Amino acid sequence: MELNPNDKRAAALPSSSSSKAEWRRWAKRARSRLSIPALSQQMSAHLAALLARHKVQHVLLYSAFGHEPDPAGVMEAHPARYYLPRTEGLELRVHPLPAPLVKHRYGFLEPSPTAPQVEPGVLEAVVLPGLAFDLRGYRLGYGQGFYDRFLPTVPQALWIGFIPQDLIVAALPIDPWDLPAHYLVSEQGVTAC
């Protein structure tokens, strides 16, 4: 996957020395111009193909909110056991679906604290939300660090960024605790990182 330097968005990209906060502002503006429902359907089809290729049967999704791409369409396309995370303090807990859902203080739905829970070791894939990803697989999140703390607990799983092509950039600023995804799934297909 190559970035076209003549792409209209390239001029608006923050510089390589820009802060994560500047990149977050750029990504939110860029994402607001995209047709997320249509892109989510295309991305879910590519995600299903990736999961099938790796024979994945236990998948942690995320609950999309706002203008995020929604990976839920993969559940119809790839038969597997699906899970959602729930925040507890600074950690993520893993709950099998179906589960009773409650609204998180940020507005997305998550499993109820009383929903059954499983150990993260059961997971074979983790689908990652993000404002942007880079070609190395590094993710720009919302800055709370939930996935930064969670990913080291699931080294056995495939880490899959679920992101529109327009939000994949050459390089993002990274911190020592940032970990790269193994794959990026966009509407254009799957890219190994």
Rank of each mutant, 00 (worst) to 15 (best):
E2C: 15
E2M: 15
N4I: 14
P5D: 11
N6V: 15
K8T: 15
S16H: 15
S18E: 04
S18H: 05
S19M: 08
K20I: 11
K20D: 11
R25W: 12
W26S: 06
A27I: 06
R29E: 15
R29F: 14
A30N: 10
R31Y: 11
L34N: 06
S35N: 15
I36N: 04
A38K: 15
L39Q: 00
L39Y: 00
Q42R: 14
M43F: 07
A45R: 08
A48K: 00
A48W: 01
A49T: 07
L50Q: 02
L50W: 00
L51G: 02
A52N: 09
K55H: 13
K55W: 14
V56R: 00
Q57W: 08
Q57Y: 08
V59P: 01
L60P: 01
L61E: 00
L61Q: 00
A64Q: 06
F65Q: 12
G66V: 03
H67W: 10
H67N: 14
E68Q: 07
E68C: 04
P69I: 12
P69V: 13
A72M: 13
A72F: 12
M75I: 11
H78S: 09
Y82E: 07
Y82K: 03
Y83D: 03
P85Q: 03
E88L: 14
G89Y: 03
E91I: 12
R93L: 13
H95W: 04
P96M: 12
P96Y: 10
L97I: 10
Y106S: 14
G107E: 13
G107H: 11
G107T: 13
L109F: 10
L109Y: 07
E110H: 01
E110N: 03
P111V: 05
S112M: 08
P113M: 08
T114E: 13
T114K: 12
A115Q: 03
P116V: 06
P116H: 04
Q117M: 11
Q117Y: 06
E119D: 13
P120G: 06
E124C: 06
V126Q: 00
V127Y: 00
P129H: 04
A132W: 01
A132V: 04
L135S: 09
R136G: 15
Y138R: 00
L140M: 02
G141I: 01
Q144C: 12
Q144E: 14
Y147D: 04
D148N: 02
D148C: 04
V154W: 00
P155E: 09
Q156E: 12
Q156L: 11
A157C: 05
W159M: 07
W159H: 09
W159E: 04
I160Y: 02
G161E: 02
F162E: 06
P164D: 07
P164V: 08
Q165V: 11
V169R: 00
P173T: 05
P173D: 06
D175Y: 06
D175R: 10
D175W: 07
D178L: 09
L179S: 11
P180I: 11
A181G: 08
A181S: 09
A181F: 05
H182N: 10
Y183P: 09
Y183C: 10
V185H: 01
T191H: 13
